[in-house]
Amino acid sequence: MAAVVKALNAKIRSNPVANYLCSTHFWGPASNFGIPVAAVLDTQKSPELISGQMTGALTIYAFVFMRYALAVTPRNYLLFGCHFVNAGAQLTQGYRYLDWHYWGGKDKAVEKALTAPVAAAAVAK
């Protein structure tokens, strides 16, 4: 049985594409893509749910690992792409957080909520 497994492994490793698909160079970033997918989906949620500290930490994390992906040999462009998407999503979330809490986004939302019934009543008349 061990000889069969060894022969199968040698067959897989002889093909460059199959070798790459069976490596951590592929599966690490592929499994890590859950983070940027979640971050992109979170951009559709209310900005009052955003944690500023977590967004800052994830932004730094994304930039550090973008650098790491290019520093390893061989360069891991899939890992770079994963963290590039994550950095973009986290920067978007950071902007939304700052807009909501510090640049008047919350006040605009409250004002809009208060004036919406008045505008609806005016249209109904």
Rank of each mutant, 00 (worst) to 15 (best):
T24K: 13
T24A: 12
T24V: 11
T24P: 06
H25Y: 14
H25E: 13
H25L: 06
H25D: 13
F26L: 15
W27A: 12
W27P: 03
W27M: 14
W27R: 14
W27T: 08
G28T: 15
G28E: 11
G28C: 11
G28P: 06
P29D: 05
P29F: 12
P29Y: 09
P29C: 14
A30F: 15
A30R: 11
A30P: 11
A30W: 15
S31M: 15
N32W: 00
F33S: 09
F33G: 05
F33W: 07
G34T: 05
G34Y: 02
I35C: 00
I35T: 04
I35L: 04
I35G: 00
I35Q: 01
I35K: 00
I35V: 09
P36H: 01
P36Y: 00
P36I: 00
V37Q: 13
V37F: 05
V37N: 14
V37G: 10
V37W: 03
A38L: 15
A38S: 15
A39G: 02
A39P: 00
A39Q: 06
A39L: 10
V40I: 15
V40R: 05
V40E: 07
V40N: 10
V40K: 06
L41K: 10
L41D: 12
L41S: 10
D42R: 15
D42Y: 11
D42S: 12
T43M: 14
T43E: 12
T43I: 08
Q44L: 13
Q44S: 13
Q44M: 09
Q44Y: 14
Q44A: 11
K45Y: 08
K45W: 11
K45I: 03
S46C: 09
S46Q: 14
S46A: 10
P47G: 09
P47W: 03
P47N: 09
P47D: 10
P47E: 10
E48A: 08
E48G: 13
L49P: 09
L49E: 10
I50D: 04
I50M: 11
I50C: 07
I50Y: 09
I50W: 12
S51G: 11
G52K: 08
G52E: 08
G52T: 08
G52P: 02
Q53W: 14
Q53R: 08
Q53F: 15
Q53L: 15
M54H: 03
T55C: 07
T55L: 06
T55N: 07
T55M: 04
G56Y: 09
G56V: 02
G56I: 03
G56N: 09
A57R: 11
A57D: 06
A57Y: 13
A57I: 12
A57N: 14
L58W: 00
L58R: 00
L58K: 00
T59F: 04
I60T: 07
I60N: 04
I60F: 08
I60K: 04
I60R: 06
I60H: 03
Y61H: 07
Y61M: 06
Y61T: 04
Y61I: 02
A62N: 01
A62Y: 00
A62G: 03
F63I: 10
F63R: 05
V64C: 03
V64R: 00
V64Q: 01
V64K: 01
